[in-house]
Amino acid sequence: MRELAHVLLHGPSTLTPAERELIATYVSSRNDCFFCQTSHGAAAAAHLGNDWTLVNEVRVNFEQANVSPKLKALLAIAGKVQQGGKCVTEADIARARAEGATDLELHDTVLIAAAFSMYNRYVDGLATWQPQDTAMYDAMGQHLAEHGYITPSEKR
Rank of each mutant, 00 (worst) to 15 (best):
residue 3 E to C: 01
residue 3 E to I: 07
residue 3 E to D: 15
residue 5 A to H: 05
residue 6 H to F: 00
residue 6 H to M: 05
residue 7 V to H: 09
residue 7 V to A: 14
residue 9 L to D: 11
residue 12 P to R: 14
residue 13 S to F: 08
residue 15 L to N: 07
residue 15 L to S: 05
residue 19 E to H: 07
residue 20 R to I: 10
residue 20 R to A: 07
residue 21 E to V: 02
residue 21 E to Q: 10
residue 22 L to G: 08
residue 22 L to N: 11
residue 23 I to T: 11
residue 23 I to P: 07
residue 27 V to E: 05
residue 28 S to H: 12
residue 31 N to Y: 07
residue 33 C to M: 07
residue 33 C to S: 13
residue 36 C to T: 12
residue 38 T to W: 07
residue 41 G to Y: 04
residue 43 A to N: 07
residue 46 A to Y: 01
residue 49 G to N: 04
residue 49 G to A: 04
residue 50 N to K: 12
residue 50 N to E: 15
residue 50 N to F: 11
residue 52 W to V: 09
residue 55 V to C: 06
residue 55 V to P: 03
residue 56 N to I: 00
residue 56 N to G: 05
residue 58 V to M: 06
residue 58 V to L: 11
residue 59 R to S: 07
residue 61 N to V: 00
residue 61 N to T: 04
residue 62 F to N: 04
residue 63 E to H: 14
residue 68 S to Y: 02
residue 68 S to T: 15
residue 69 P to Y: 01
residue 72 K to L: 06
residue 74 L to E: 08
residue 80 K to W: 06
residue 80 K to S: 03
residue 81 V to R: 03
residue 81 V to F: 02
residue 82 Q to R: 14
residue 87 C to G: 00
residue 90 E to G: 13
residue 94 A to K: 14
residue 94 A to F: 04
residue 96 A to K: 07
residue 97 R to P: 01
residue 98 A to I: 00
residue 99 E to K: 12
residue 100 G to Q: 02
residue 101 A to E: 10
residue 101 A to Q: 11
residue 101 A to F: 03
residue 101 A to N: 03
residue 102 T to D: 09
residue 102 T to A: 08
residue 103 D to V: 02
residue 105 E to V: 07
residue 107 H to D: 08
residue 108 D to E: 14
residue 110 V to W: 00
residue 111 L to Q: 10
residue 112 I to D: 04
residue 113 A to T: 08
residue 113 A to S: 11
residue 115 A to R: 01
residue 119 Y to H: 10
residue 119 Y to C: 13
residue 124 D to P: 01
residue 125 G to S: 10
residue 126 L to V: 01
residue 131 P to Y: 01
residue 131 P to H: 08
residue 132 Q to H: 06
residue 134 T to Q: 13
residue 134 T to H: 12
residue 141 G to H: 02
residue 141 G to L: 09
residue 143 H to A: 12
residue 144 L to F: 15
residue 148 G to E: 12
residue 149 Y to T: 13
residue 150 I to Y: 12
residue 153 S to G: 05
residue 153 S to Q: 15
residue 154 E to V: 04
residue 156 R to E: 14
